[in-house]
Amino acid sequence: MADFYETLGVSRNATDTEIKRAYKKLARKLHPDVAGPGHEDEFKAVNEAYTVLSDPEKKRMYDAGGEQALHGGGFDAAGFGGAFSDIFSSFFGGGAASGPTPRGERGRDRLERITISLKDAVFGTKRDIKGSFAEQCPMCHGEGAAPGTHPTTCDQCGGSGSVRQVTNSLFGRMVSTSPCPKCGGHGTVITTPCPTCNAEGRVRAEKSIPVDIRAGIETGMRIRMSGQGDAGIQGGAPGDLYIEVSVRPDPIFRRAGDDLLAEVTIPMTSAALGAEISVDTFDGAQKVKIPAGTSSGFVAVLPGLGTGHLRGEGRGDMRIAVVVETPSDLTGEQRKLLRKLAELRGEQATDASMSEENQGFFARLREKFAR
């Protein structure tokens, strides 16, 4: 008597998955439609072994007492139900046909890139994307058949899109299905192609597509426009259009999230006494108050003058960093006034260019090099 484990080429400790994998490999190899005549007995033995080893109860009985323990319950050649029909269907295309394949094919997605200014990102803008796109054929309206005609039912498959092939084997008739070679599985045939698109259902055309760019968009973000890509083949759905945005750097302002950042330089006197200055923004000139005693690093905030929020209402803020300028080209009169101010404030007033100590130092230095 044959050893079922040996027949399938697996060990007695093989898992259910290993047993099934071994069976599928051998059944594919030995099936009469593949191996031809002369392998029927081997094919039957493989199926008999799998019938037992794939059934937990039969496998337990076989492991305990061999084939005799099955009480004659060997392989039933009356049919291949359950797992066998599923396996054979996956091998040889058996089972009911699923119907003809739709003729249309989805169009290609498109990616276009645009560059906008920071001001456009702050407020949002509109642009037109121009280019050559695949558009539905205006003559056949995407069907692919010449005007006045339509695809006709395939006379080889009768419109089913598939053909059946019957093969006689040891266990009866084996039926397999495959796409119809004449219609390609569509069930219909275009006998008179459209002369404009040659049955493709689409043509190339120049196209301009308006794009709404929302406020708050950032570099690298993409806008998806559903159905605005290339038209599909023979009435298939169109692809999508993606717009990738790049924001051009601004010479004055830079962005931090939805806030705008900038710097303004003020004279030392304005910082000391306080002032009101005018600052140019994307919303026009704005007044900014500088408190008395301001030092470099002070940040003035202009609420609501930043970038629009991409999701939601409102805008970020504008933040103006103050840089205090220290004069370096004072006149003699200006130096006197500053020394007077320093005296009034009780500060040590020294003028490095005029102090007697420094003058003496440079005089001694000149004398040394003059020797």
Rank of each mutant, 00 (worst) to 15 (best):
G158S: 09
D317E: 04
T307Q: 09
L111T: 15
T219L: 05
T17R: 10
G158L: 11
A27W: 00
G9C: 00
P195F: 13
R173D: 14
F253I: 03
G124Y: 02
K58V: 01
A22I: 04
S278H: 08
V279C: 06
T153W: 00
L118E: 07
T265G: 12
V10F: 07
D283P: 08
Y23W: 12
G159Q: 00
H39V: 01
D86L: 15
K119F: 10
A145R: 03
K289M: 06
H31N: 14
L365E: 12
A121S: 13
G94D: 12
K25F: 03
L305V: 09
A134P: 00
H186W: 00
G81N: 09
P32G: 07
V324Q: 11
T188H: 00
R339C: 05
E313W: 15
G346P: 07
V324A: 15
A199D: 14
R366S: 08
G201H: 04
T17A: 15
R103Q: 13
S169G: 13
V34T: 12
S162K: 11
A262F: 03
E105W: 02
S278Y: 01
K126N: 12
T149F: 04
Q359Y: 13
K368Y: 03
Q286N: 12
E18F: 02
D230W: 02
D230Y: 06
T350I: 15
A64R: 01
D128C: 12
G38H: 15
S176N: 11
P303D: 13
V163I: 15
S178T: 12
K24V: 06
A237D: 06
N47S: 04
L302Q: 05
K340C: 08
K59A: 15
A96L: 14
I252W: 08
S208V: 09
D16A: 15
M61E: 13
A14K: 10
M268Y: 06
L30C: 04
G38E: 12
T281E: 01
C137P: 02
D329H: 10
P291G: 05
G332F: 10
V322K: 00
I320G: 00
A300C: 13
V122T: 08
G236Y: 06
P327S: 11
I290A: 02
L261Q: 05
A321E: 09
R364V: 03
T281L: 11
A285N: 07
A271T: 09
I277G: 04
D259Y: 03
S117G: 11
I223R: 08
A363W: 00
L302W: 02
S85K: 13
E57L: 10
D16R: 08
